[in-house]
């Protein structure tokens, strides 16, 4: 019991991540602006569809257009349709032509929410007689906005709720990498010392890693399908993952084709070291290729530096830790089974 404290810790952390990661609400956000293009010198009704907002229960919601200089133009005639939908009007003056404006909304329950560069003002050729007055831009002190209480995950326009996949999908890859590293360490130790235990540990860790890899591919594929519309995208990380899966399946195949335990241990350890090191250059090569062949091919939206904000971190790092602990646990089970089999004289 005392020795297996880390297993209990792993389960508890996983429980914390699953419950917390699924129950913490998302920040409110704007999913749709219709129309997103307005014409200069025109007054037009804009329908705003939002997510996770409380337009009806909150104090009147106010909507602004924010210019690049930090000036605000408030919308008139805000009409609340539902909790998540409202319409409003802007008087678009002539001098706003050709610019992009951030749309910001605020009420006392949801706090502020915005779409960067949500509305584009186009040139209007037909309506010459439209109002020529200057737009009434004012200063709004955003520091006065009440922040909603409690923990909230950031809202990202395409990701929506799937930002939670950071804990269940991205963490899986991190844990997989750690397990493979442990497997590699034991493979090297096996070649150095020739102790069978290292071989058993090495396979056990690699098998846990392979399990996580398979799960990562499935969950990633699911994620891609519902956010970007395809089961597979030409993403750097995805292709690296696929390649490493091929190699580790090859490793399992190799291990299954020996009748001699000693040769199997030695040769599969050499292969796993060779394969691991030989793929390291790929980390440096692929960015070079994507720069020249596929310009603007970005990385993973959930892990781009600033995107990983502190509320996500609160669950992301524990999730990695929990998955590593569970992986070590599964590896330990495999290892003990192998030991038992050898003791009983059974070749597995």
């Amino acid at each position: 019991m005392l020795l297996s404290w880390w297993k209990i810790l792993g389960i508890l952390i996983l429980l914390y991540v699953v419950i917390g990661g699924l129950s913490v609400p998302l920040n409110p956000g704007i999913t749709d602006l219709n129309p997103g293009q307005l014409y200069a010198g025109q007054q037009k009704e804009v329908t705003i569809t939002a997510y996770n907002t409380h337009f009806k229960t909150a104090q009147p919601t106010r909507i602004w257009l924010k210019s690049a200089e930090g000036k605000f133009l408030e919308a008139q005639n805000v009409q609340i349709l539902t909790e998540n939908k409202l319409t409003c009007h802007w008087d678009i003056a002539k001098n706003m032509e050709g610019q992009q404006y951030t749309v910001i909304g605020y009420n006392n329950i949801d706090g502020s929410f915005l779409v960067p560069d949500g509305i584009v003002i186009l040139k209007n050729d037909s309506a010459e007689e439209a109002n020529t007055a200057e737009a009434q831009f004012t200063d709004v002190n955003t520091a006065d906005f009440v922040k909603p209480s409690g923990l909230r995950f950031p809202y990202r326009s395409i990701l929506n709720e799937t930002i939670r996949n950071t804990f269940f999908h991205v963490a899986l890859w991190m844990a997989m990498f750690v397990l493979y590293l442990l497997g590699l360490y034991h493979a090297i130790q096996y070649l150095r010392t020739g102790k069978n235990e290292h071989d058993w540990w090495s396979v056990a860790y690699n098998k846990s890693g392979i399990l996580y890899g398979i799960l990562g591919l499935i969950t990633g594929s699911l994620w891609a399908r519902f956010t970007w519309g395809g089961w597979w995208t030409n993403d750097v990380k995805l292709n690296m993952a696929a390649l490493s899966m091929f190699l580790y399946f090859g490793y399992l195949l190799l291990r299954n084709s020996f009748n001699d335990a000693e040769a199997r241990a030695r040769i599969s350890a050499s292969f796993s070291i060779f394969a691991f090191v030989a793929l390291i250059p790929l980390v440096f090569i692929i960015p070079r290729l994507t720069d020249s062949l596929h310009p603007g091919n970005g990385g993973n939206p959930a892990l781009g530096g600033e995107d990983l904000d502190h509320t996500l971190r609160l669950f992301f790092y524990p999730s990695i830790l929990a998955l590593i602990l569970l992986g070590c646990w599964m590896a330990q089970l495999k290892f003990r089974m192998q030991k038992l089999a050898i003791k009983a004289g059974i070749y597995t």
């Binding site: 195949l253 190799l254 084709s257």
Partner: peptide, 26 residues
């Protein structure tokens, strides 16, 4: 490596070496 394995060595050879060639090939 595959020379030491038993069974279908030709298949083992392709399965293990083709993924590894990717960095060089690219």
């Amino acid at each position: 490596v595959s020379g030491r394995a038993e069974g279908n060595q030709g298949v083992m050879m392709s399965v293990m070496s083709l993924p590894l060639t990717l960095p060089v090939l690219l």
